[in-house]
Design a binder for these strands. Structure first.
Lengths: 357, 357
DNA sequence: CTGAAAGCGCTTACAG
DNA sequence: CTGAAAGCGCTTACAG
């Protein structure tokens, strides 16, 4: 290895030397803190520009280590067998937490049952009482979410929305997929697979369909494609708020009897495994099945060829990135210019091995 | 924000206090450096375990800042209009370089023309003469690559292979896609799109097809799928080493006349835009077209519906991750357990907006 | 085999 | 409005 030259010839020290001031003063200018005369400020800024000064992030963070703890409130659906999906975002959050815990981050978790609005409202209340430094939520129930967002706005607490967005609200940013296009993309895949004379079944399985923005928007995108490129007459819809296996199977059997020419089924969420189980039980794995999320169960059906396509939206990365964004903002004041729209990934039995959540 | 407690109660300082030694000695034990008596070593190790000590990476790096410069040699195809693809890995490498330049990284670039083996050999020679601390190459020409790998082995210089692998060679790791499965996945997509009575054309466009491992392996994977699930008799092959547009078009016209029932065309690399241009010119965008890489030109054809699917393998991330892996290894001695297999992403006109290279 | 001291680049509490 | 000094957690050249 060679000698390293001019390592100091930028840096706060050098700026201070040239400006004939102390490092503290340079620091004040860099961070736009008050208490510096206009004259010195200008002088220092000129030198900063001239040297094209870039702060050493490592040193910055290290120096901040002794500062106070930053407390993040995270509001997430809890993980039941039924909603295994939420394990992934939580893992991403845990990962971020582990990485930056030693630099002064603390994460407080608030869980809720996706079927019980009152718990959600209660947790929102709790968060507001605990007065966190930053907030991260999945806005399953809109009215309560908006209440929280307004609290954050007045208190100037940054809030990140994850997984699904609320239009027209003040927040630091949204981190998640463009759900409309997720549905639209599904329809496109369906179109490629559809043979002549066949129809498509679109299936919503959730206790609260009408309140579930994620499902509704995906469905909207899906329909939009059919309106545009094919015809809505090719579509057969099935909604079930009873998510137990036998109930879903019964409804599906019923519908299949009425509509025998179903060639493709699109399930709007991770419950696609219920449909897969049914397809397998009636020996109809010739029907193309498209659904959501990289869950162990779904992958099993994918391997066996019962599920054909899974759309995935990097849930772990969503969690990780959300926490990191809040941390960066709170510690370094890193500005967040825009929402971070997560890629919509297509997984089949041939590429699932390499997928990274 | 709250007060931060017990910030010191782990850390080298605390270990030293408990072991009644200096921090230097603790450091020696942590890094397994010689010059510590077995007795103190054991004592210190016990405390490290007890405290579950995790080093502060920030502080580590910062302390190393004053050390020497690390010089990485990077061997890449140069970027011509014809091989725009290679811009992306280069960007990833540049990004990594920019991020860690200030921590003592220097990257030396060696470019070569993919059609001229002699230049590749020459650059390999150059690299060996310049005696770098780490090496990153895309092993386009195998014999010369192996020569370099052997040099690295004897000199104990870590070497990362990127984009395509060489079996059975000693190297730090491979970072890139599993190319066989990339071809296999393409065939699976073809299968979903294929209608009755239709045939599939597989197109290789490159000056050096027989020497291009990447192309050969993808083709192999593609054929494997057809052997397994359909029949090779459905396949029509076209190889052209003349990569100029009119030459490719002429060959395609010829073949299309002989085989009128082509329903899908699979192009094994980023030159898919040549085929797209031709399809558009003869007004046959009904034929499904599958190819590679997120290039501006390809995306244009994707938007217009001429190209249907693009497979992409995060070339920028490949470059970025390769440099980072070498840096981590050289600076922190981070062990590299295994190859990093890049996901194989499927891009259509409905999700390209959200793709991240 | 071991330790005291200086240093990495930045931040801050305190004093003036 | 400004500066001297101490500190973040880790590493290292030097002395013994």
């Amino acid at each position: 290895m060679e000698e390293k030259q001019d390592s100091l010839l930028s840096g706060v020290k050098e700026i201070a030397r040239r400006a004939k001031v102390s490092r503290a003063t340079v620091d004040r200018v860099i961070h736009n803190r008050p208490g510096v005369s206009v004259k010195t400020k200008n002088r220092i800024n000129a030198i900063i520009k001239e040297l094209d000064y870039q702060p050493n992030v490592l040193a910055q963070r290290l120096a901040l280590t002794s500062r106070g703890i930053i407390r993040l409130a995270v509001l997430l659906p809890d993980i039941s067998e039924e909603t295994e999906y939420w394990k992934a975002p939580l893992e991403g959050i845990n990962k971020a937490e582990a990485e930056i815990k030693q630099y002064g981050l603390q994460v407080d978790y608030y869980f809720f049952d996706q079927n019980v609005q009152s718990v959600f409202a209660l947790q929102v209340q709790q968060i507001m009482e605990n007065n966190p430094d930053g907030v991260l939520i999945t806005p399953t129930f809109e009215p309560d979410s908006i209440r929280l967002l307004e609290y954050c706005k007045t208190k100037k607490i940054p809030c990140v929305l994850m997984n699904s967005d609320i239009a027209g609200q003040h927040r630091l940013c949204y981190i998640g997929p463009e759900l409309f296009d997720s549905g639209y993309l599904s329809a496109q895949l369906v179109h490629y697979c559809l043979k002549d004379q066949q129809k498509v079944m679109i299936v919503n399985i959730a206790r609260e369909i009408e309140n579930n923005a994620a499902i509704l928007v995906k469905e909207e995108g899906f329909l939009a494609y059919f309106k545009e490129k094919l015809s809505e007459r090719l579509l057969v819809a099935l909604n079930t708020t009873d998510t137990r296996h036998h109930a879903v199977a019964a409804r599906l059997n019923e519908l299949l009897e009425l509509e025998s020419h179903i060639g493709v089924i699109y399930v709007t969420n991770s419950r696609v495994s219920l449909v897969a189980q049914w397809l397998e039980s009636i020996g109809r794995s010739d029907i193309i099945l498209i659904g959501y999320d990289y869950l162990a169960q779904n992958i099993e059906f994918l391997k066996r060829g019962v599920i054909d396509f899974l759309l995935c939206e990097k849930p772990q990365e969503q969690g990780y990135r959300s926490v990191m964004t809040l941390f960066q903002f709170l510690v370094f004041g890193t500005l967040v210019k825009e929402d971070y729209l997560i890629p919509i990934d297509i997984i089949t039995s041939a590429n699932y091995r390499y997928y990274r959540n």
